[in-house]
Design a binder for these strands. Structure first.
Lengths: 193, 193
DNA sequence: CGAAAATTTGACATGACTCAACTGGAGTGG
DNA sequence: CCACTCCAGTTGAGTCATGTCAAATTTTCG
């Protein structure tokens, strides 16, 4: 169960974990299973945990006044899911996170994570690199969203996230791109010439 | 010149800097002045420095095939400006960063920064908090861009960034919001009822 | 097979863009 | 102090991309 996580940590840090450190990681991260459609986080709740996706797929979205879902993130294996704003500020979340497939998570509270970071330098290193990677990805996505047409955004998405296309239906991708499913359908039709 | 930076670091870390650490910070960050319109970074160049804005205002933007500028970030006092992707990956930047007002910066290379981080724990702490704040802000902006109409985005902008409204003209704000200056002008007119 | 979910299609509405013209400062230099 | 230019902002008319709504079709899966 924890192998993916350990591999992930070792991949993102210079020094491999000692076996004591591995044991500590395994003891601290709690397994949690979600069946398809179950929530990891519901709007209005404070997000108590960060979660590492061992297996499965989830989505994070807000719901507007008209009841329309706006998908802000998609997660599959080896992604970290949580609403950082809520976790850090202890404020009620504006987002829902639910399982799109049956999913296995490893979850950890912020307090536990801060504690682990004191004890395991490799974790601090990993988080810094994750933050960097994340900042870069967010920058790209923002830039694309602001500057590009729906069509171009979809092209870039196909280019950058082929894994997501396999795992999520079109209307989810459309929402992630900030367009309607009808528009995406037409864009795809158009692209077949 | 360096007071703002020292204050900034101390503000974001639990333990105040020792005087040796302060001296090290002062010795490492190099002052740089830009006159209005001068570039801190030009598209195609690798972004060698991170910069802390001591005084002034800058903007970061890309230019599309039609020659239209798409503003992705605005910076004023106490902001950090750089293209992280370019700095970290050593790739040519897709962005320009230039001074909108006469500006005073403190600049540092990535190597110097990594070195400082080894020597000054408070810096590591500060960067982690900055990354968190940044991640939260990016999340909000992305969410707003995907989910909201131009009008609502402008409202949120006025709410969240009143400082920018004082310092940048309307067409810059419009571009930052991903709309044209004409549309923003009409939105503002509309809002006066 | 049958029901639910996903996708496609058509007709129409609309928000935002484009382009061009006009207005009103804010400087600058003669 | 005026004439000139530059820059920012506004306005109008026409266009285009994308959204909306409703229905038909296809796919998935128990």
């Amino acid at each position: 169960m924890h192998e993916n996580l350990l591999a992930y940590i070792n991949h993102y840090s210079k020094n491999p974990l000692s076996s004591e450190e591995e044991a500590l990681v395994i003891a601290t991260f709690q397994p949690k299973k979600l069946r398809k459609k179950q929530y990891f986080l519901q709007e209005g709740d404070v997000c108590k945990y960060a979660s590492f996706v061992v297996k499965g797929a989830m989505r994070q979205y807000s719901v507007d006044d008209k009841g329309i879902e706006h998908i802000v993130h998609l997660f599959i294996e080896n992604y970290w899911a949580s609403d950082r704003e809520s976790t850090i500020m202890l404020t009620p979340s504006k987002y829902n996170i639910d399982a799109w497939e049956d999913t296995e998570l490893l979850i950890i509270t912020r307090a536990e994570m801060l504690d682990l970071m004191e004890k395991i330098p490799a974790l601090v290193e990993m988080i810094r690199l994750m933050d960097e990677r994340n900042a870069i990805a967010n920058q790209r996505r923002l830039s694309s969203t602001i500057s590009n047409s729906a069509e171009k955004r979809y092209e870039e998405f196909v280019e950058n996230h082929p894994q997501f296309i396999q795992r999520f239906p079109q209307h989810i991708i459309a929402s992630y791109l900030g367009i309607t499913k009808e528009t995406l359908s037409r864009i795809r039709k158009q692209a077949l010439k």
